[in-house]
Structures are given as structure tokens and as C-alpha cells.
């Protein structure tokens, strides 16, 4: 699948438009995306940091695309997730990389990292499961 088709798919999802991200690279086992900072992403009212839930949502969206970039109606069905928050997400772009650890017939397991200034300085990391049936 080419990136243009994937991003056209992303643009059809109302919540993905709310998150405002673009898929920048992908193959059968991974997807990478960049999210643009928006006022409605703010969680901490004093410091203008990303809301933890927005970070987790962006990670879930990137993971779902890595698993099923060619979804027709709705993105891959999430089963559950765990996220570790490592650093605050500050005002500015946020990047995510989702690696498909295993994709079986029914279930996929995906690990995701997010960062801002450099990949080694992770903002969060998470594990996501999806139901493929």
C-alpha cells in the first residue's frame, strides 16, 4: 500500500482528523506517523503538555494502521493496551513508531514508542492487542 492511500484512509476517520497525524513510512511490520500539536491536545492546564490520553490515542491509531493499513470501514479492533509514560509530551510535533511483534489469524500484538527530540528520548511506550476477526 502506498502512503497516499493510507493517509486518505486516515482522513476518513473523524477521530484521526481530531488527532491530526500523517503516516510517514510503513511496510508489512511497521508504521511511523507524525502528529501536529493542537490546542485540544493539551492535558496539563498549567504547562501546555499533551494529554496522556491523546498520546495513548495516537499510539493506538498508529498501531492499528501498522496492523491493518487497508481497513475499509473502521480501524483494527483494539482489545487492550498498556502504556508507560516516560517524559512529558511538550508543545510541538510528536512521532510514533508501531512495530507488529506478532500477527496471527485472530490476534495481533503491537509495540509502540513515541518521541519528540530524538528516538532515544521516548515520551511513552506501549503494547497494544488487536482482534482481527
Amino acid at each position: 500500500m502506498n502512503l497516499q492511500t493510507v493517509n486518505a484512509n486516515v482522513a476518513r476517520v473523524p477521530f484521526f482528523r481530531f488527532l491530526n497525524f500523517e503516516v510517514q513510512s510503513m511496510d508489512d511490520f511497521h508504521a511511523e506517523a507524525e502528529m501536529t500539536f493542537e490546542a485540544h491536545h493539551i492535558g496539563n492546564p498549567i504547562m501546555e503538555h499533551y494529554h496522556g490520553g491523546i498520546i495513548a490515542s495516537f499510539m493506538e491509531a498508529t498501531a492499528a494502521i501498522a496492523v491493518q493499513p487497508d481497513f475499509t470501514e473502521v480501524p483494527a479492533k483494539p482489545i487492550n493496551l498498556t502504556v508507560d509514560y516516560l517524559r512529558p509530551g511538550v508543545k510541538g510535533p510528536l512521532y510514533a513508531r508501531a512495530n507488529v511483534t506478532r500477527k496471527g489469524k485472530r490476534i495481533a500484538s503491537v509495540s509502540v514508542i513515541t518521541w519528540q527530540t530524538g528516538r532515544e528520548k521516548q515520551v511513552a511506550e506501549g503494547l497494544y492487542h488487536f482482534l482481527l476477526v
Binding site: F15, F16, G53, E60, P75, L81
Partner: peptide, 15 residues
């Protein structure tokens, strides 16, 4: 997440 806008994204529940 859907065109008819009746299915919430998991992420908003997490948020």
C-alpha cells in the same frame, strides 16, 4: 471512528 459517527475510538475512553 466510523462514517456514521456512532462508534467511539478506544483512545478517547483511555483519555
Amino acid at each position: 471512528v466510523d462514517k456514521d459517527q456512532t462508534l467511539l475510538h478506544g483512545g478517547i475512553l483511555t483519555a
